[in-house]
Computed example of a mutant assay.
Amino acid sequence: MLSHRLRHRIHIQLPVKTQDPQSGEELTGWQTYLLASTPLNNLPAEVLTGAGREFIAADAKQSETTARINLRWFPIDISLFYQCRILWNGRVYDIHSIETDLTGRQEWRLRCKDGVNQGA
């Protein structure tokens, strides 16, 4: 992985479920993902955004942008990582797929979408 390509900074967040004490409703909050007590915020990454698209959903015009985010490899629980969201440049991205390089130990390649998402 070429370090000069990692010019963006991303923030990885994990959903946290809590219960409203008055109504009993389950609420979802977000907290910084901790990897061995190290917060995964301000991570160097390469963010490549594609062309956006517009569509009609729920009788309203919606828009979405796809992105590929490359970052250095680190050990993670992939099943837990799919629940996370990425914050970058004021946008919230949901992770749709996770891939590694050929060796499986150099970089993570995340395919993400923003716009109409569950991570907002």
Rank of each mutant, 00 (worst) to 15 (best):
D59S: 14
I56C: 01
W73K: 14
R68T: 14
T66I: 05
L71G: 06
L87S: 09
V92D: 08
I86H: 08
W73E: 04
K61V: 09
D101S: 06
A58D: 14
T103C: 06
Y33L: 15
Y93A: 02
Y93W: 15
K61G: 03
L48M: 14
T65M: 13
T38A: 10
E26V: 11
R53Q: 11
A60E: 10
Q19A: 05
A57P: 00
T32W: 05
E54C: 03
T38M: 06
A57N: 02
D77G: 03
R72S: 08
E54T: 12
Q31P: 00
E26Y: 07
D77K: 05
L71A: 08
L80W: 04
T65D: 12
S97E: 09
S23M: 05
V47I: 03
L80M: 11
A58H: 07
N41H: 09
L40C: 11
I86W: 04
L48H: 13
G24W: 08
T38H: 10
Q22N: 12
I78N: 08
N70Q: 09
Q83R: 13
E107R: 14
R72A: 11
V92S: 14
K61Q: 13
A51M: 09
T28D: 03
C84P: 02
P44W: 02
G50I: 00
N89D: 15
G90T: 08
K61N: 10
D59G: 07
L35C: 11
F81R: 01
E64T: 12
L27C: 00
L48G: 06
T100V: 00
L102D: 12
Q19I: 15
P75L: 09
I95V: 02
F81V: 05
R91C: 10
I76Q: 10
I76P: 02
D20E: 01
W73L: 12
S79G: 09
L71W: 10
R72N: 07
G52Y: 06
A36F: 07
S97F: 04
L34D: 03
Y93N: 03
P39M: 00
I56W: 04
